[in-house]
Design a protein around this nucleic acid. Sequence first.
DNA 1: GCCCGACATGAACGGTCGTTCAGGAGCAAT
DNA 2: ATTGCTCCTGAACGACCGTTCATGTCGGGC
Lengths: 215, 215
Amino acid sequence: MTKRKQTTVTAPGTAERDQRPPIEAIRAAAFAQFAERGYPVVTVRDIMKACGLTQGALYNHFKSKDELLHDIIASTQGELERLCLQAVAGAGDDPRAKLAAFVRVFVIRHCRLRIEALVANREIGWLDSERVADVRRSRRAIRDIVVSVLKEGVDRDLFDPPQVGGRRDLKAIAMALLDQWTHVSMWYGPGRGVSEEEMARLYAEMALRAVGARH
Amino acid sequence: MTKRKQTTVTAPGTAERDQRPPIEAIRAAAFAQFAERGYPVVTVRDIMKACGLTQGALYNHFKSKDELLHDIIASTQGELERLCLQAVAGAGDDPRAKLAAFVRVFVIRHCRLRIEALVANREIGWLDSERVADVRRSRRAIRDIVVSVLKEGVDRDLFDPPQVGGRRDLKAIAMALLDQWTHVSMWYGPGRGVSEEEMARLYAEMALRAVGARH
DNA sequence: GCCCGACATGAACGGTCGTTCAGGAGCAAT
DNA sequence: ATTGCTCCTGAACGACCGTTCATGTCGGGC
């Protein structure tokens, strides 16, 4: 089998002891490895070697490899939810401004913390069912923020989104937009000569057009 | 460890011999398992048991588990590329019609064959590097179809897409749109009461708006 | 009847996995 | 000096991995 051997995510063979508190060193090392190679093929031994410890030491800080993944995902996801709420709340009264602010925060975060976002989106499936429910709840909450902004815009006649089958499916539109914003993290890189700020403006403009925002 | 045991993807404990030619039975079983649980955690034994054979028989039909995955992904990806080309070619001369036709084909396919799409998009990372290059080339080709349609629309003054930093980044716009269309497969289900046809129309409308198509 | 190719079997190989645990090191409080 | 606590070590465990291979079965051509 081709098992995708470790290609050294930090320094070559070093493996010298991380100076941070061990629990944080483990989190950081695990995160980097999951991002690069994916949860199921990263072993506990890989993670611990990367922060200069041996496999057994993991279990002084986490109950299992599974709990470690959940710890990482849940913290980035929680932070994202908080940021989204805050963006909408601080954008005044106009739904157009709310939507623009939301897109800006969401896209910039997914550009800047693209690795974090990538891990949270890709590895969620490996969590056991109760832990995964927790993350999904947060995702739904974020989607509902978008839906409520759209709904407000429609009610106040500021948005005119496409209709399908004679009625508006705001949930589908929100999902479509969120898919778009989320997956910047899959291909954006500063090497393209486009700043995060510019990406955010591009996506905001596309979103406002897609929902038929009045000028 | 919690390894996500097999939850019986077909019948319970049956494991009776599939009546198709074995190579197709293997493909089908592998596909179903990869879709449900992900490539790295599905074992050769799982796949072969699902079609009523034992582990060794796999190697009469495929060189390795890796080749089996590539076989599955490459065939769906190739078919998708073909469909996209055909859609644009058969849509006449107007870039707006071309874009609409492309979205229609792409979205309907991702709704209908959502499992296939999901596997092709999610498991690609497990292929070894030469095989993955093959699939990525096909993806780039599809993206370039979109870019060329956008470019034609802009040149003929039929599209007015958002600008970023004073110039148009058609590649970024194409990526953003493709992300949106691709990921319908992650959440669409006929249970929502929206048909594939309606989804396609919704996405086409959003795309035309986003790129500023003139009426 | 005999042979051959195609294909399935299932034990076996060498390896890796997540996790456990007895033992030891370091250090602060007694 | 002794105790007790936290933390790390590394061998060990049992399970399972992808793959190989000697062996067996079976159907069709001579």
